[in-house]
Write a protein that binds this DNA or RNA. Structure first.
Lengths: 153, 153
DNA sequence: CGCCTTTAGTATGCGCGCATACTATCGGGC
DNA sequence: GCCCGATAGTATGCGCGCATACTAAAGGCG
C-alpha cells in the first residue's frame, strides 16, 4: 500500500520532512527573536526594509513584500504593528497617493542589527548538523524556489 | 553590514530559503488536496492514522500526534473536524477513560487512498527540479530533523 | 473632461502552529 | 483506602499564511 511507504513512517516523503524541518526552524527562530520582541516575519520585513532603504527611490509595501516573498496582506498587518512599536514609519508616498513610503527609525535599525546576530547564531546552530553539505542543501533550496516561481508565474 | 549579506537578497540564508520553499510546497499541497476537501494537516493525520491502524493496539490521539510530529492541540481540533465529516471515529478507549480510540471509516480510507495519489503527483512535480540530487536533499532534511529532535528533547 | 483597466493597500474570514492553562483520569506510593 | 505526580485531551488566545473582496488612486485613451 502506498500509504505505508509514502506517509506511514514519514521518512520517505521529502515534502513531509521539509514541513517538519521548517516547523522546527521557525520554533528556533521564535526563541532567538523573543528577547527582541519580534516574530520571524517582523524580523524579515524589518531587516529587508533596512537593506532596501539604501536605494534611492522610496520603499513601498509592495516592493518590500515582493523582495521578502511575503503576502501583501500579512505585510500590511505586520508593518502596522512595527509602526505602532516605533520601529518604522509609513509616510505618504511623495509621488503616489496610493502608496506609502516606508522608513526604518533609528530604534528599528538598532533592533534589526542586534536581532541579526541572534538569528545568524540560531541559523548556524540549526544547520551545523549538515556540515560541508550545507552549500549543496542551500543550492537545492534555491533550485526549488526558482522552480516554484517558474511554475506559478 | 551583515544585514545586506544575510537578509538583503534573501539568497544567502538557508533558513529563509527553507521557509519560502515550504510556503510554496504547502500552496501546492493545498491545490492538490482541494478536490478532496482536505487540508494538508488533515491529510497527513488521516493517512498516518490509516497506517497506524494496521497495528494491534488502539490508536490514541497522542500516538498519532507523536507519529506525525503534529501539535497535540491542533491534532485534537483537526480530528474533530475529520470526525464531523465522517472520515474517522473517536470512540472511548477500552482501557483508558482519558484516551480515545481512533478508527478510520471506510469512506475515510477511500478518501485517503485517493488523496495519496494526488499528493504523490504533487510532490513528484515539486521536487522534480532536483533530479538526481533528491536523495541527498532528503537525507539532509532527515539529518536536520533528527538534529532538532536531539537538541529539543 | 469622462471612461476603463491596472495597481497599492486594506477589511474579513478560515485554518495552521503554538503557548498557556485547565479538567479528568491513570499510576505509584503511603 | 487516600494523596500526588504524570498523562490524555481540551479551552482560549495570538500570529502566520492565504483566499476573497473591496476602496482609492494611477495611467491609458478618446
Amino acid at each position: 500500500m502506498s500509504l505505508a511507504t509514502a506517509f506511514g513512517s514519514a521518512e520517505e516523503s521529502p515534502g513531509l520532512l521539509l514541513w517538519q524541518v521548517t516547523n522546527r526552524w521557525q520554533a528556533a527562530q521564535r526563541a532567538a527573536l523573543r528577547p527582541f520582541g519580534l516574530t520571524h516575519v517582523q524580523f524579515v520585513l524589518l531587516a529587508s526594509l533596512t537593506y532596501l532603504q539604501a536605494s534611492d527611490s522610496p520603499v513601498t509595501q509592495r516592493r518590500l513584500a515582493d523582495h521578502a516573498a511575503t503576502d501583501p496582506m500579512m505585510t500590511s498587518q505586520v508593518l502596522r504593528a512595527l509602526e505602532s512599536r516605533g520601529l518604522l514609519t509609513r509616510h505618504p508616498h511623495p509621488g503616489d497617493a496610493r502608496a506609502r513610503a516606508l522608513a526604518v527609525t533609528p530604534e528599528g535599525r538598532d533592533v534589526a542589527n542586534r536581532a541579526v546576530g541572534a538569528v545568524e547564531s540560531c541559523d548556524a546552530a540549526f544547520f551545523s548538523a549538515l556540515g560541508p553539505e550545507t552549500p549543496a542543501f542551500t543550492a537545492a533550496l534555491r533550485t526549488l524556489r526558482n522552480g516554484c516561481a517558474a511554475s506559478s508565474g
